[in-house]
Write a protein that binds this DNA or RNA. Sequence first.
DNA 1: CTGAAAGCGCTAACAT
DNA 2: ATGTTAGCGCTTTCAG
Lengths: 335, 335
Amino acid sequence: MVKITDVARRAGVSPSTVSYALSGKRPISDATRRRVQAAVRELGYRADAGGRARAGRASKVLALALPMRAGIDVPVMTRFAVAVVTAARAHDHDVLLLTQAEGEEGIGRVADAGLADAVILTDVQLHDPRLPLLRSRSLPSVLIGVPAEPDGLTCVDLDFRAAGDLCVDHLARLGHRVVALVGSPPEVYVRRTAFARRLVEGFTAAADRHRLTSAVHPCQAGRDAARTIVERLLRELPALTGVVVHNEPLLDPLIDAFEDLGLRVPGDLSLTAVCPAPVAASARVPVTSVAVPSAELGTRAVRLLVRKLSGAPVPGTTLLPPRLTQRASTAPRGV
Amino acid sequence: MVKITDVARRAGVSPSTVSYALSGKRPISDATRRRVQAAVRELGYRADAGGRARAGRASKVLALALPMRAGIDVPVMTRFAVAVVTAARAHDHDVLLLTQAEGEEGIGRVADAGLADAVILTDVQLHDPRLPLLRSRSLPSVLIGVPAEPDGLTCVDLDFRAAGDLCVDHLARLGHRVVALVGSPPEVYVRRTAFARRLVEGFTAAADRHRLTSAVHPCQAGRDAARTIVERLLRELPALTGVVVHNEPLLDPLIDAFEDLGLRVPGDLSLTAVCPAPVAASARVPVTSVAVPSAELGTRAVRLLVRKLSGAPVPGTTLLPPRLTQRASTAPRGV
DNA sequence: CTGAAAGCGCTAACAT
DNA sequence: ATGTTAGCGCTTTCAG
């Protein structure tokens, strides 16, 4: 392992000069800087992270808390992860992965052991048990998701309320009068997951505004669950012609179930979804959807966190406006 | 931040005693140990990772190199990640995530900066460019996947060769005489990804052994690609009745395409897959499959790595035997 | 503009 | 069985 003293010797300067030449924290003559840089290159020097962290500097590591528990959307989480790692690298940081198995514990550990400089939380609940920890340890953080009381926190998310609204609006404009939301698995709502609830609010508010008949049904994943919910929907709302789906793995099974029961999409039934764009586009019938911009959320979270670590002011809550992309699954009613 | 000297003062002992009481690296009287443990609990002490790493000890961090590039099976990778983090925590380690965007660079950085004690590589190529780096830096590692020359390396993987064989064997026993392998996207083979190639070998060898007519076709993801490959298959092999799929997102689209062209599964065509069990089970027609035990591979990789770090001997290559689970997609020919 | 030297928090040899 | 002390590699005063 090549250390700073090796570089110093090679460049014919003192270790501190090397440190300063690399950090730029004090003026260094051009000639010296060049010699140091050459030595660094030749020896392949890379500052030891432990040493740096020890001397009170940042560890250049960000922690990412990914829940990965029942009912959460794995592709969305994976996109977060990839986007976060990529963005973090672009800002010269690495990423430590925490999963829910030890979620709250993990944050305490990261903070106490100085494993990371800051943390990104995903799958934020309305009253998230991790938030008190965060405040008490004064560990810089960014949340992907917005809790009930976001004061003093930095949050990024898709505006799920507006997304629910947008879907209903689209259906209403097409003439649909009876609509249903097929939501995430019940656990998700029981946990009071913020984004899922907000989507329901937006859906309901828009349905009321347009004076539509509406219903909301959480739903497990799986073909059987899809079939069951479809049968129930048609029994309870025989005039149903518009459906919003917020449950990515259920998209194909739902379409299949409707068609098995004689309802064509979009001929008899229009369907919109809130999910990652590729999922909507590659469904059996390409689905009109509001995209969940997982990658952008991850990238933004990192950007905010890095800015925060640098001491710059950052906005409290950033809600990304939803955008609806029309595909083959929606059509005017009764055509 | 509470440090070891705080604990020492509180317990009325020296810092080194605290260190030893915690590590157990030398005998400590029961009374002292108890006082130290009490002080640790009361103060909520947690050893600073940087300090420990600095003093030449392990950082207790494992790096996980997840490629996440084109043609990679995302659910499989996600399972690896979750299993690795969970297992690592069970062994008191954390996990640093590396993605392909900076794959080889990442390993160098981790090694040089001492960011992690060891690394787990996934998506191993036959001649993987990361391997020389690994050997030269003497960074302890475990590979999930087996390269062309695994001597001196520790590898774990599903026995993909046997898996291909097993699928063909199953089809042959059911009386099928013409079989095809619908594989992963072409990039995967071009990259010489080890497991994909091994599956092809096993498939081909078994087909030859059973004197079956066989064909191998890589295939992109997506419904259009599925349709195209199915049409081509039926044109080139009109007597086709058995298909092995090694391309998880293609399962449903393939079944749809075959049925659109008048071939019922399993009535006219038997289909087996090599993919995670849940994917096979939740396809439109539950698919007879050889499970890719992603979670178990991840767990085993961590176990091996931890053992290796402790200095214990570890096996070179561990190949997990494939297990075929019969579901609804295979039936005897011509019934 | 540069060097020497003092730590950062922890562990492990070296005392006792 | 416990305390003392010397670093680990780096950054950052403090002195030139």
